[in-house]
């Protein structure tokens, strides 16, 4: 039985449709990451400034996006934007927007954490040769914080990719949604198809995330080796 089930993947255009769904997933994750990272860098730098009200506001922004589960964030935007603000977006764009704001929040913490962990005497010696604030960030703080930020950002990317799985909930035609359609359409001919379709999607996610995690781990290990001499 289980043997015949696997052929559901190659029936008609099924495999191509799944790949198409995967493309939707990857695209949303990629766009969300690009804009979210840019947003997060700006917010993270702002959070290292002395201005207290600004810091408090940005901290609250972070905490909100951290405390509320992403599924709930998605539904907050899904219901509230169109109904309260008359702002209608197709589901995939709405999801991208939510992800951008979420990634921005998480990224701001990565950036801030890395910036403030640059040793104080580095800042002082930068000041001692007359660097202004912009130059201090540009030549000292940001370059030195990158080795901390890059692995953390790659890990964030793997989280974003995993989290795209919830797009299903607002009916985006992502890989899981298409998988479900294929399972339902073939339920009679291939009762074990569900196993193979979900198995394949499972594998898709793993194949994208595993190399990224591996890369992040390697960079982190190198960073620690360097830091400890």
């Amino acid at each position: 039985m289980a043997h015949s089930g696997i052929s559901v993947l190659f029936e008609g255009t099924n495999f191509m449709r799944l790949l198409g769904g995967l493309w939707v997933t990857v695209k949303i994750a990629a766009v969300a990451l690009i804009f979210g990272i840019i947003l997060g860098i700006i917010l993270g730098v702002l959070r290292t400034f002395k201005n207290r009200p600004l810091r408090v506001v940005l901290r609250l922004y972070l905490e909100f996006f951290r405390v509320v589960p992403t599924v709930v964030l998605l539904f907050l935007f899904y219901y509230i934007l169109p109904r309260q603000m008359n702002f209608n977006l197709p589901a995939d764009q709405l999801a991208t927007l939510v992800f951008v704001l979420w990634v921005g929040a998480e990224m701001s913490d990565i950036v801030r954490g890395a910036l403030i962990s640059v040793p104080r005497h580095q800042i002082e010696s930068g000041k001692a040769i007359g660097l202004n604030r912009f130059q201090l960030y540009r030549y000292v703080l940001i370059p030195q914080s990158l080795t901390l930020e890059i692995p953390a950002t790659i890990n964030l990317a793997t989280r974003v990719i995993k989290t795209t799985s919830i797009l299903l909930l607002i009916s985006v035609m992502d890989v899981i949604n298409i998988g479900q359609q294929i399972i339902e359409a073939n339920n009679h001919t291939y009762p074990t198809g569900v196993f193979w379709v979900y198995g394949l999607i499972f594998l898709f996610y793993f194949l994208i995330d595993y190399p990224l995690s591996w890369w992040a781990k390697r960079l982190e290990k190198r960073r620690l080796e360097k830091a400890n001499g």
Binding site: H121, A128, L131
Partner: peptide, 30 residues
């Protein structure tokens, strides 16, 4: 600070820059 130089106890070169770039940062950028 361009007129009042300071050197600290910790060896505080910028680890992301070569020796030459450490030295050139002030003269060329500041």
């Amino acid at each position: 600070r361009q007129k009042i130089g300071m050197v600290f106890q910790s060896y505080d070169l910028f680890p992301n820059l070569t020796v030459m770039d450490n030295i050139l940062l002030g003269p060329t950028k500041v």
